[in-house]
Computed example of a mutant assay.
Amino acid sequence: MSTTPTAALSQAGVSIWLDDLSRERIVSGGLERLIAERDVVGVTTNPTIFAGALAKGEAYRDQVAALAADGADVDRAVFEITTDDVRDAADHFRPVYDRTDGYDGRVSIEVSPDLANETEATIAEAHRLWDKVDRPNVMIKIPATRAGLPAITAAIGAGISVNVTLIFSLDRYREVIDAYLTGLEQAKAAGIDLSTIHSVASFFVSRVDTEIDKRLEAIGSPEAIALKSRAGVANARLAYELYLQQFAAPRAVALLDAGANRQRPLWASTGVKDPALPDTLYVTELVAHGVVNTMPEKTLEATFDHGVVEGDTVTGAFAEAGRVLDALASVGVEYDDVTELLEREGVDKFIVSWNELLETVRSALEAAR
């Protein structure tokens, strides 16, 4: 029986991944404590996370000095620093990876966000990161942009495990699943062991509510206001329904029978943006077997402290989730417009963070020289 809410989440089939990584967290033993005490079984990173970690900088001083002495430019320095952190974190999670036969113990690193609309460059960067980290429990993050879809297929087809990021719409999620299955078919044809390939599909949650709630407030009718803060959970629940349907279809079943793994849904952007909402909303309302919830530490600690986990809160709620999206349309919120905007903004925000990371490292290199 569970003794903590995070243990209860794990027992319900939810894999808890931390949405954060820094060298300080690794070397201080903080990551190990979260594994031991908070049921954390994986880590995700992104340009924003690395920009924040490098800005603090102290733990990176010696490596930056060595890179500066070696004449490294900023691009090489960022590549070396971030892949070292991910490799070290992957080693810390290796016991989890071994214990779960590769199901968990995963650490994700993202291709450069300024490649989000360049298929071939994304494929090349995915191979470069995969080879550099050189750990079986790493996942390469590729955004679910139009150009990212064929890159996902190519990476999976080459045997690279992929975390597909920045998914907002159900239609795009359907395309992501298709890209994954196509990649598995290519890997099978190439003689690659399908059981070694893992993937998650990161469906963003709170950002959907933030944008839709802004539009509902602008509409201002009682019907619109009553729908506030319901879209993100409804959208994710319908994504889980789509996951169940697609991986029960004959095409997927044939691959699963050949040893392939399901591409698990991952709930991302699970920190609550509206302080009026329960701080564990995007955790306790999205409990379902076989999903990942990647949490910022604040959300993780809130869940551990006072999260109420009462089993599956998703599979019995598909019809109601569909009614929420229908009601949004009826009051004038255009779902496709929202999700297209969020994808563009998601790429743009990561590019801003990436540029901040580059500037931070550039300044550190110059100071070291």
Rank of each mutant, 00 (worst) to 15 (best):
F318W: 15
A268R: 04
L325K: 02
L281K: 13
T360E: 13
E359T: 15
E359Q: 14
P250H: 05
P296V: 10
L286M: 09
G311H: 10
A302C: 02
V314D: 00
V361P: 07
V331E: 00
A319T: 13
P265R: 01
D274L: 02
S269V: 11
D336Q: 14
T294I: 03
D312G: 04
T270H: 05
P250Y: 07
A248W: 03
G311F: 09
P275R: 11
G271V: 10
A302Y: 04
E345N: 09
P265A: 06
D348S: 14
F304E: 15
A327E: 14
M295N: 02
S353I: 10
G290F: 07
A268Y: 00
F318T: 07
V291D: 06
L342S: 09
G316F: 09
A248R: 11
E285D: 14
A329C: 08
E297L: 15
L277T: 08
T315A: 04
F350K: 05
N293H: 05
D279W: 10
T270F: 05
V308A: 13
E297V: 13
A302H: 01
L328S: 00
E359R: 13
V283E: 02
V291T: 15
I351M: 06
F350M: 15
D348I: 06
L281E: 02
L325G: 01
Y282I: 02
Y335S: 07
V361Q: 04
V291Y: 00
A288W: 00
T294C: 07
V253R: 14
K298Q: 13
F350H: 04
K298N: 10
A248L: 02
D348F: 12
T339F: 14
M295R: 04
T284K: 11
D312R: 04
V361Y: 12
E334K: 12
A268H: 05
S353K: 00
A252E: 00
K298S: 15
L342W: 00
L277R: 13
A317R: 14
A317W: 05
P275W: 12
V308G: 00
V287N: 01
L266Y: 03
V352Q: 12
A276L: 12
L325R: 11
M295T: 10
L256Q: 01
E285L: 01
A321L: 04
L357A: 11
D348Q: 14
I351E: 12
D336A: 15
D337H: 08
T315G: 05
A248I: 04
E310W: 03
G271C: 05
V314W: 08
S330G: 02
E310Q: 14
A268F: 09
A248C: 04
E320S: 14
Y282D: 02
V333S: 10
V272Y: 08
A319P: 01
P250G: 05
A276M: 10
P250R: 10
Y282K: 00
L281I: 13
A319Y: 07
E301W: 08
T284Y: 09
N261A: 01
D257E: 15
D336K: 11
E359P: 00
A276F: 09
L328R: 06
P296E: 03
G307S: 07
L256I: 04
L256S: 07
E334H: 10
D257H: 05
V352F: 09
V253W: 01
S269W: 01
E301M: 11
V352N: 03
S353R: 06
A252M: 02
A252R: 08
A268D: 06
Y335W: 12
G346E: 03
T270K: 10
A321F: 09
G316C: 10
